[in-house]
């Protein structure tokens, strides 16, 4: 079920630690229940990294989509699809929180 709307403002949960090591974004679960097992790490692909860096608790997902579409010269619809896909994954894994809708 797709619960993401573009009015959402999202920010990283305090239940994870996001680290950038040698250009790789690594998400380390801090509390139990984020991963399927306790020792998992997560990485984001290039699209995911570009989106993650903008999840600052201030910008709406719409604003982020527009920024990315401009920056990467990509169709807004395509960027929105990527954003929505990633947000669904991150929300399901409780790695980000939604501040307002």
């Amino acid at each position: 079920m797709d619960d993401v709307t573009f009015d959402m403002v999202c920010f990283p949960s305090e239940d994870i630690v996001a680290r950038e090591i040698e250009g790789e974004l690594i998400i380390v679960p801090l509390v139990a229940g984020i991963g399927d097992t306790d020792d998992e790490l997560y990485t984001l692909n290039e699209t995911g990294k570009a989106i993650w860096s903008r999840l600052d608790g201030k910008r709406t997902l719409r604003a982020i989509s527009e920024e990315l579409a401009t920056e990467f010269n990509a169709p807004l619809e395509e960027v929105g699809k990527d954003l929505s896909g990633l947000m669904n994954e991150l929300i399901r894994r409780k790695m980000i929180l939604v501040q307002s809708v």
């Binding site: 998992e40 984001l44 990633l86």
Partner: peptide, 12 residues
């Protein structure tokens, strides 16, 4: 398409 990749530390 998946955007996150789940790994064990030794797989990283």
């Amino acid at each position: 398409m998946t955007y996150t990749k789940k790994l064990k530390p030794h797989e990283f």
